[in-house]
Amino acid sequence: MDDSQLLKGVLEGCVLGVIVKGETYGYEILSVLENAGFENLLEGTLYPVLTRLEKKGLISCRKAKSPFGPVRKYYSITESGQEYFDNFKASYERITTASGKILNGDITEGDKRNDGKL
């Protein structure tokens, strides 16, 4: 199954989740996500996400020389980014709980009668 649509939905939040832990840079974010299980994630997918987050003002960047020489962008979370991340986490938990119930077949009679609201 092509999981790119699912990935698109959560990637911004996950990238913010890495940056929220402390100042970091592109390759490190890629490695953290890869080690966490996003095995097929490429730099090509990550870079536009970082650009979008920066444009939205959710992350800020500082430029410094990397140990290899070229200029490296170090990202850190902004105040609005922190707020966005908290909201994202709350929404994500609500959606995963709800979808978990459906996918695992845990719907009770009470859920069915609750005006369709899960």
């Binding site: 592109g26 490429l42 730099e43 090509g44 870079y47 990397s66 290899f68 020489g69 070229p70 490296r72």
Partner: peptide, 25 residues
Amino acid sequence: ELMNSLTDTFLSAQEEGKPVEKITG
């Protein structure tokens, strides 16, 4: 700016001995 970021990523991945396809597909 983009090419600087890519150079840094490529150099980092090369140092770790990863195949280039891991970065570019």
